[in-house]
């Protein structure tokens, strides 16, 4: 993505966000739609369009779990690890998912680029703990640790969404 594209997207928003720092998030979100993650060029484009430094833009992007600074898998699986889900075994679910995809305990992207596994904070589905969200689809739950294999198979089988806002 280049600065002109980002600028074109931001043009109608500029009145709503008079402070340029406030434009970073919409700009980053938009830049990520291209390939599902942000490379240095994207960060520089956003920096140019918002008039902030690239370093600052990167710093903001790194703060948010759903802005990716490394290539992601075709689907992204976010496992809630906040209290309710944790009490219902989400840590075991998470460990199991990582294990099945051959990933280290901190998660990451599977070797074949199929899925990215990451943790998430409370998804607001505490009543369905432990819960999981795939990309930005409706959160599902409960997904019990021993259902992990089945769950992954379903995720891998489903078609990748055409709109990649994650």
């Amino acid at each position: 993505m280049n600065a002109d594209q980002v600028n074109a997207y931001l043009a109608p928003l500029r009145d709503r966000y008079p402070e340029s720092r406030a434009l970073i998030l919409p700009a980053l979100k938009y830049a990520q739609t291209e390939k599902g993650w942000l490379d240095l060029e994207d960060l520089e484009a956003v920096a140019e369009a918002t008039g902030l430094t690239s370093a600052y833009v990167e710093s903001v992007a790194s703060f948010y779990d759903r802005l990716y600074l490394r290539p992601t898998g075709r689907r992204i699986v976010s496992v809630c690890v906040t209290l309710s889900c944790m009490l219902r075994g989400s840590d075991q679910l998470y460990a199991r998912l990582c294990d099945l995809e051959g990933l280290p305990p901190e998660g990451g992207t599977s070797e074949d680029g199929g899925v990215t596994i990451q943790t998430a904070q409370c998804l607001g589905y505490c009543d369905k703990a432990p819960c999981v969200q795939v990309d930005v689809d409706e959160t599902e739950g409960p997904v019990l640790p021993d259902e992990a294999e089945e769950f992954l198979a379903k995720v891998r089988a489903a078609a990748q969404p055409t709109e990649v806002w994650r």
Partner: peptide, 17 residues
Amino acid sequence: GLLTFQERGGDSEITTF
């Protein structure tokens, strides 16, 4: 414009862009 903070909370760290 070189130094920046990355990540958040306990994972925050100083690095260059």
